[in-house]
């Protein structure tokens, strides 16, 4: 069972390499944002697998924290690409 989990950890870590390549190389900003979001998801699954290996539930809070931060970051980047400014003062007048 432990070998299986370690193999899964290796596979997920390996799958992050093309995402990092896309994040560095990515021809467009939207490619980089999607790669960053996918790296966040892979990191979440990595932490989940690792918490199975070390048999603790303390990492689950970190998973939730990482998901929230990744979500907010993706929303902010998307708004930056779409509108150009992230925080607008008054949305209704425009």
């Amino acid at each position: 069972m432990t070998y299986f989990i370690f193999a899964a950890i290796g596979l997920v870590a390996l799958s992050m390499l093309p995402m990092i390549y896309r994040m560095v190389k990515g021809p467009d900003a939207s490619d980089r944002v999607i790669a960053l979001d996918a790296i966040g998801v892979a990191l979440i699954s990595l932490i989940g697998l690792f918490s199975i290996v070390v048999e603790t539930s303390y990492f689950l809070e970190i998973i939730l924290l990482l998901a929230i931060l990744s979500f907010i970051g993706t929303v902010a980047f998307s708004k930056f690409i779409e509108k150009g400014d992230i925080i607008d003062r008054d949305n209704s007048s425009k």
């Binding site: 924290l65 929230i68 931060l69 907010i72 929303v75 902010a76 708004k79 992230i86 925080i87 607008d88 003062r89 008054d90 949305n91 209704s92």
Partner: peptide, 17 residues
């Protein structure tokens, strides 16, 4: 985390709301 929750609202709406 609480600040980031308010930031999410600011992102979706605007500062005035």
């Amino acid at each position: 985390l609480a600040a980031s929750a308010i930031v999410l609202l600011i992102l979706a709406f605007d500062l005035k709301t």
